[in-house]
Design a protein around this nucleic acid. Sequence first.
DNA 1: TGCAAACGGAATGTCATCGTCCGGTTATCT
DNA 2: AGATAACCGGACGATGACATTCCGTTTGCA
Lengths: 189, 189
Amino acid sequence: MTREPALRADARRNHHLIITTAAAVFAEDGLDVPMEAIARRAGVGVGTLYRRFPDRGELIAAVAAHTFRAVLEDVRAAAAAAPTPWDALTRLLSGSENLRLTVHLAFLSPHTWTRVHSASESREIHDEMMAALETLVNDARREGSIRADVGTEEVLGLVSWVLAAPASAAESVPRWLELVLDGLRAHRY
Amino acid sequence: MTREPALRADARRNHHLIITTAAAVFAEDGLDVPMEAIARRAGVGVGTLYRRFPDRGELIAAVAAHTFRAVLEDVRAAAAAAPTPWDALTRLLSGSENLRLTVHLAFLSPHTWTRVHSASESREIHDEMMAALETLVNDARREGSIRADVGTEEVLGLVSWVLAAPASAAESVPRWLELVLDGLRAHRY
DNA sequence: TGCAAACGGAATGTCATCGTCCGGTTATCT
DNA sequence: AGATAACCGGACGATGACATTCCGTTTGCA
């Protein structure tokens, strides 16, 4: 257990601001944007960025942990608020900006991303997030809302890929999602 | 009309080899891979590469024109060989490596790609290729194989995005394509 | 008010890539 | 076969972009 010396108020503010900004910038320009670009966008000096995150890896790990946690909350909220699993699923997929962001980041550099979420402390939260997603899809399948011949993996994979569309295709995503979900839905004969 | 001085046999061979290799390397590592990487992979010196393509832009343009042409041929072949438009479409989408490659490249860097195909001599061949694709989808729609409520643009957009999956997800693509196409198909009530 | 912590951003060192240049090689023609 | 023009390969110097550090200044907190 390392003793956290209790950050000063401005430091804590910046810490959070940097993570948020980094997530957005990574999503826009890739995981290898200059550190300075992130700092500038966050309205902070590079010095501040480096004091908080000694290297790019730490920053990415922090962003990952943060977005995983946010998605997990969204999944739980959707599951709690919607009347049926299918409903929760569609709500989540079309409504969670956090999910969109996370998926986008994950596809940005599969290699880096895998290393990050499998080796750091964010692993636990990642697994929890994935488990929640799988549960949601499984419930929908068990409920009979999803074609019986497609697996959970397939649903998550395909849908994630659609969500991962770059910002330039953002307008199309909702419609694509609608079409894909409709295609995945158990047909009414 | 510029007079082409008739390349020597080895030069012509290399010219073609470079374009082919560049397409593959671009697809794997992005449009900004070092020129040297392309040269090495093609088994050629950077000097040779630069002699044929004065800068990266020219190379990209050449690759674009080449892949557009290849796709156009595949589209025509599919249309000619298949019994119905729908059949031609599925065949093309699941069988044309050229199409996969082109789409992949197009999504790699939308900005660069747009500039390339709209400003160079490849524009003509690009438009022809797109027209052929649209015709194919339109025929399938008119035939009644595709859900009446989805437009040609939507079909092309969604399906392209699925095809654009990176090499790391290559195994999933056929199944995803199957699911998406099935979802796009007019339902049999 | 005083001090420790945090801030910003200029400055430095490193590294990768571009694009050229030229000595050696190969295809083609007589 | 021999001449020659075209072509080849890759070493090399210039260039520009980034990561990271360092320190004078500012700010939260007691």
